[in-house]
Write a protein that binds this DNA or RNA. Structure first.
Lengths: 110, 110
DNA sequence: CGATCTATATATAACAG
DNA sequence: TCTGTTATATATAGATC
């Protein structure tokens, strides 16, 4: 979408805020879509460095969904790490070695 | 993206699972992008009806991010409902008035 | 199920006002 | 900052294997 950007922190403060605002809207929109269409309870929370908080929840009380997760037995939580997150973690390790995020991400998709 | 679908629960079980799987991947990918590019801590949790759990967190321990939110004073949390969520809620009310069956599902969850 | 392909629908970076 | 436009990059429904 739009011109491609590197997978690294946006240094320009204004540009970073604009990007955050736009992407947050899209993210929440999609969270709502998956919640409705796939009938799942979804909760999303984001803390910005400046202390701002963004959240979305498909139910009335986000606390219930979040606590439902936190209250799970530890071993149950650990077994539910998604494959996608595993891939992301693998990517981070590669990034650390080669130091070029955008190139590695391209490789990861192959 | 792809052929448009209605904003209502996908009745076909197989189709619903496929859609959930695809959209979850995209959602987590975007959550990671906004976390990195905008330097924010993000947490995402989803409970499917069948009991499956999906999560993503930009930090090592998702519990920390979720609890960080839950532990906020109630009034602080309430003041941080995003404008997008407000719009979604307003949309639901309008939908209710118009009586579109597929949109009534929103209200049921409230 | 999971992967891949293709035609569309969306998302969005850069820009303009 | 906020809104709107536009050119591109992504996401994804449906189909097929």
């Amino acid at each position: 979408m739009g011109r491609k950007i590197d997978m690294k922190k946006i240094q320009d403060v204004t540009k970073c805020q604009v990007t955050f605002s736009k992407r947050r809207s899209s993210l929440i929109k999609k969270a709502n879509e998956i919640a409705v269409c796939c009938d799942v309870d979804v909760a999303f929370v984001a803390f910005s460095p400046s202390g701002r908080i963004s959240k979305f929840c498909s139910q009335r009380r986000i606390e219930d969904v979040l606590r439902r997760y936190i209250d799970l037995p530890t071993e149950r939580r650990l077994t539910h790490v998604t494959n996608v997150q595993k891939k992301l973690e693998k990517l981070r390790q590669l990034d650390h070695i080669k130091g070029d995020a955008s190139k590695l991400q391209y490789l990861e998709k192959q």
